[in-house]
Simulated scan of single mutants.
Amino acid sequence: MQVLVRDNNIEQALKVLKKRMQREGVFREMKQRRAYEKPSERRVREHDEAIRRHRKAARKKAQWEGLIAAPKRRVKKPATSASR
Rank of each mutant, 00 (worst) to 15 (best):
L4V: 10
V5Y: 00
R6S: 09
N9L: 01
N9C: 01
N9W: 00
N9D: 04
Q12F: 01
A13Q: 01
L14F: 05
V16H: 00
V16G: 00
K19Y: 02
R20S: 03
R20P: 01
Q22S: 07
R23A: 14
E24F: 14
E24Y: 06
G25C: 02
F27S: 06
R28C: 08
E29R: 13
M30A: 06
K31R: 15
K31A: 15
K31E: 14
Q32S: 12
R33W: 08
R33V: 12
R34P: 03
A35V: 10
Y36C: 05
Y36T: 08
Y36I: 09
E37T: 14
E37Y: 08
K38P: 11
P39Y: 06
P39R: 08
P39I: 07
P39V: 09
S40E: 13
S40K: 08
S40V: 10
V44D: 15
R45Q: 05
R45Y: 10
H47N: 13
E49G: 07
E49D: 12
A50C: 07
A50L: 05
I51V: 05
I51C: 03
R52A: 14
R53C: 11
R55L: 14
K56S: 15
A57T: 08
A58W: 04
A58S: 13
K61W: 08
A62C: 05
A62D: 05
Q63W: 05
Q63V: 10
Q63E: 15
E65Q: 12
E65I: 01
E65V: 01
L67K: 12
L67N: 05
L67S: 03
I68H: 01
P71I: 02
K72M: 10
K72Q: 06
K72P: 07
R73I: 04
R73T: 05
R74I: 15
R74E: 11
R74P: 10
R74Q: 15
V75M: 08
V75W: 04
P78Y: 03
P78W: 05
